[in-house]
């Protein structure tokens, strides 16, 4: 088991290196690398030449890549052109807001999607389950930005009950500023979180419904019935266990996917997170921030995938190495 873990970590590291090389190629080979710095410098040829020498751009490629890699590992991505601050700092400042939003959205999606999916899967085929499924499809077909605007229209414009822009008051917990624990923060958080979660509610419901339906037809469920277990026990002990193992992986991966969805939601609600930062950076072509974002996101996804694999290995006995060669 240990060796499997090591090999997975090794694979992730290799993938990260491959991605870093791809980014290096994209940024340093396609574009003018000196453009990584202050645009004002670019206009002055003398300063540009001096900067190029200073940056070591006259060095052979592999040395440049090595320096790039070293910089990445120590977290230096250069200065953001827009904010005139280290790119890493810019990103880290906004990360808690996004994590808070994503966390709430996943929680909502899971709490709604799990029971709905379970009921739908158990009751298939029936009108109820068909209805639940159709609504779920509607949920993940709706464009996120549209959902946000509809919610704003209903609650902010129509009912004037909830704010439509920005983040509310925050309090500091363990060094991180969170807004979910303040009333004002909560009122600002509701609409964006619901918007972001809608896609996932639909997705979870469908996924769990399908998994439940497949599992309930499996032979070991019939056998559990046949050996005399009451329905409640069959569902709680046998069916749910079978469904939960792959579920953990799905939740982990979807959490990552939500970081993407947050790009749109944060733009609609002007939520000060990394998603909005990314959009602004792409619009302004703020390369240092984009590069930093890519590398950090890649690391985050690789870590999430690794965690998902580990969780699955823990929960699914068939994936663990056998104790006896059978």
């Amino acid at each position: 088991m240990f060796s499997i873990l090591l090999s997975r970590i090794g694979q992730s590291a290799l993938t990260l290196i491959a991605i870093s090389f791809a980014v290096f190629a994209a940024v340093f080979l396609i574009g003018e690398p000196a453009a990584l710095y202050d645009p004002l410098v670019r206009e002055d040829p003398a300063r540009l030449a001096a900067l190029r020498a200073e940056l070591g751009l006259d060095n052979p490629l592999h040395i440049q890549y090595a320096r790039f890699l070293a910089d990445v590992m120590s977290g230096q991505f250069g200065q953001s052109w827009v904010y005139q601050e280290p790119a890493m700092k810019v990103i880290l400042e906004r990360l808690p807001a996004t994590l808070e939003l994503v966390g709430c959205a996943i929680a909502i999606a899971f709490c709604l999607g799990y029971p709905l999916g379970l009921i739908s899967g158990l009751k298939k085929p029936s009108r109820l389950s068909a209805a639940i499924e159709r609504v779920a499809v509607l949920g993940y077909s709706a464009p996120t930005f549209w959902v946000g605007l509809v919610l704003i229209y209903i609650f902010a414009v129509g009912a004037d009950a909830l704010p439509s822009i920005g983040r509310g008051d925050t309090i500091q917990i363990l060094g991180v500023r969170l807004s979910v624990f303040t009333a004002d923060g909560l009122s600002h958080l509701i609409l964006p979180a619901v918007t972001l979660s809608l896609y996932e509610i639909g997705y979870f419901t469908r996924m769990i419904s399908t998994m439940t339906e497949e599992t309930k037809h499996k032979t070991f469920i019939s056998f559990a019935h046949a050996k005399g277990l009451p329905m409640r026990r069959v569902i709680s002990n046998h069916l749910l266990k079978a469904v939960s193992a792959p579920l953990v992986t799905i939740v982990a991966i979807e959490t990552g996917a939500l970081i993407a969805g947050s790009v749109i939601t944060e733009t609609v609600f002007a939520w000060p997170g990394v998603g909005k930062l990314l959009v602004d950076s792409v619009a302004a072509l703020d390369r240092p921030v984009i590069v930093a974002f890519v590398i950090l996101t890649a690391m985050a996804f690789l870590a999430l995938n690794l965690l998902a694999d580990i969780a699955q290995m823990l929960m699914d006995p068939t994936l663990r190495p056998k104790r006896v060669a059978a």
């Binding site: 032979t219 070991f220 019939s222 056998f223 079978a242 193992a245 006995p317």
Partner: peptide, 11 residues
Amino acid sequence: FQNPLSALNPF
């Protein structure tokens, strides 16, 4: 049942 590997809960 016929196939014992599928008759028992793998988890």
